[in-house]
Nucleic acid binder design. Structure first.
Lengths: 354, 354
DNA sequence: ACAAATAGTGTGTGCGCACAAACACCATAA
DNA sequence: TTATGGTGTTTGTGCGCACACACTATTTGT
């Protein structure tokens, strides 16, 4: 337990070779005899060698071009937070010679996504970070990047078909389960609960489907299926009077409605409705710490928020990329961020922490 | 926006001096003429110089001796987690030449604390991390370390009288508020709630008092004082039959008791009691993800756990110390860890994440 | 057979910084 | 005049690593 730090030089000495040889073993830059390679690898393991990441970063003064493809964040505090997270990581990691370019696309316009993704591909960066909101349209690019050997990290929306370097974000299914639990805690008596998808094309948004599945399964797996009746609705805010009428009718038909689970960050739209109608008996749970949601959380109209932590997603995405590119660390294929349950009393720990 | 990385050498060139001179300005190692100093400082600011932490860590091959003084963690998973956090940070930071020695004391025996603290003082380390469980007995050591100019970081228990390098932990008062909120969510109808302190000497444990204050204030500040009646009890598990009798009597005298708030991690003791008595109408909220609490959380007997995150406390304590000693970064005086609300469905993100 | 290609290995340099040693300059005192 | 000492500055070395390069011994091509 001398706890002495093992260097490449130490490995080399013990193996009776030069540091260059050890280096070649470590980085697989070929032309090594089999026995030497095995011997060196054995000793590396024996001595518990860990590279000195400081030295590693210092030695190579390469500049890494990393691009981030994120939905346009003007007037959208969710994506704004994601960009803030990326920029925070950028500040911390600037000294390692990374250069981050940001590309924006319109989340409601596939064409802009394709255009920017193509631009990125043409610029042949060293790494790509993106929120792949459009499932179908993203896959061809994954293909291209794979053959170009450009590592890419996806965040926010998980796509399992292709294997990126990492996925950073939440487990949507699990977050549905969590929402189910919260409702069963705050609604002790039998009642109806409404699942509301707002402003989304469910067909192309797998994570919302997973949330709903998780939510439903919470009740069926816990033998609560006959205690709670689940309803479901898809809403668009574009036509607000229709929006209102649709909810009106749900409430009318289900006088025992005591909960609404909004699968997106648009819960404040329901909250506004409930406030206007002076309805206090319906508990509301939705996602994300955007200002309007925080407003209604503080007013008591939203019972719980689940934090999807866009800032953390951006931050860790870039961090993972740099770990991989600069420090040559192994990075995990999936990094699930914790499911944070937010109320007024703990929300301050989850917003703008620098 | 050339984004070129500024080095000491660049500063030196621009100022017309050598790098050594810049170095002396940066580190205040004296013997610098006033005008040169000012000029260099001006240029440093102008060029927006940021030291390269990798190179800095690499260049100085000093070994830093850091000691951690933590309650004995055999059979106590709370402090065990804290030590795990310290060790995780230790592994990550080993390469920067830090050497961590751990000292244990018996949390129920002040003498052992004093003895170890004295040992530590005699060893004159470069930095100290500790959980100052004993208020009065800790102060003289803070005094000593201050005059010896040994930086110390406290975690878990906040002591405001002396100013350490940092406090890492939670805001106890705020966590009391949070518990109040959770009860008001899950108990919609008027009822009685019991505040239970278990196995602690309240007089010398300021954080428990703060929790209780926060809890009480939640109800008074939200005009809920006449909806919820608060009771209070101090319990010792040593005499278990007395323990049972005391709770029996509270329940008997308050048939509307629907919640118990345990200010420590000993909630499982109440849970055991409730299970034995087949009481299902009382909601239980307590602290910490120790195995017995997790057990009762999964069974539905504990409604919510609030995570004090001992692992994170240990981890960040060492990290802060290294940021200060090795990287010469500014570290914040207080780092409040978030108040995590834990249920069965999100607990996995908060335990043994490596 | 001899040059050329190739497999396998060792050596040297520089990354940005900290730190020590060396150096130059000036003032004062013996 | 030469010591002496303080002040301000430069120069050199090494940290652990990546990577280009140099070198040797063997194989291959003609």
């Amino acid at each position: 337990m001398s706890s002495k730090i093992v260097r490449i030089k130490d490995i080399a000495e013990k193996a009776g070779v030069s540091t260059g040889t050890v280096d070649r073993v470590l980085h697989d830059r070929g032309r090594i005899s089999q026995d030497v390679k095995e011997k060196v690898l054995r000793i590396i393991k024996e001595m518990n060698y860990e590279p000195n990441y400081s030295a590693r970063a210092l030695g190579s003064n390469k500049i890494y071009h990393i691009v981030a493809l994120v939905p346009n964040h003007t007037n959208d505090s969710y994506w704004y937070e994601a960009v803030m997270g990326i920029e925070k990581a950028e500040r911390e990691l600037k000294q390692y010679g990374i250069n981050v370019s940001r590309y924006k696309f319109d989340p409601h316009n596939v064409a802009t996504f394709i255009e920017k993704a193509q631009e990125i591909t043409d610029s042949a960066p060293d790494g790509i970070i993106l929120a792949p909101l459009f499932y179908k349209e993203t896959l061809p690019f994954f293909d291209k990047w794979s053959t170009m050997k450009i590592p890419f990290i996806i965040f926010n929306t998980q796509i399992s078909e292709y294997s990126p370097l990492s996925y950073i974000g939440q487990d949507s299914y699990q977050s549905g389960l969590l929402a189910g639990r919260l409702f069963s805690q705050i609604n002790p008596d039998p009642c109806s609960i409404l699942i509301a998808h707002i402003d989304e094309d469910i067909g192309n948004a797998t994570h919302l489907i997973k949330k709903e599945q998780g939510f439903r399964n919470y009740f069926s797996h816990n033998n609560l299926a006959d205690k709670y009746t689940l309803h479901r609705i898809e809403l668009q805010r574009k036509n607000y009077s229709l929006f209102q009428k649709q909810i009106d009718s749900v409430i009318e038909n289900n006088p025992d409605l005591q909960g609404i689970y909004v699968t997106t960050s648009k819960g404040y739209a329901i909250a506004t409705y409930l406030e206007q109608r002076h309805i206090k008996s319906i508990n509301l749970i939705c996602y994300d710490l955007v200002p309007k949601n925080i407003h209604f959380l503080n007013k008591g109209i939203i019972s719980f928020l689940i934090n999807q932590n866009p800032r953390g997603q951006g931050y860790w995405s870039l961090h993972h990329m740099v770990d991989y590119l600069v420090f040559k660390k192994k990075v995990s294929l999936i990094k699930y961020l914790p499911l944070d349950v937010i109320v007024k009393e703990n929300i301050n720990y989850f917003i703008h922490e620098d």
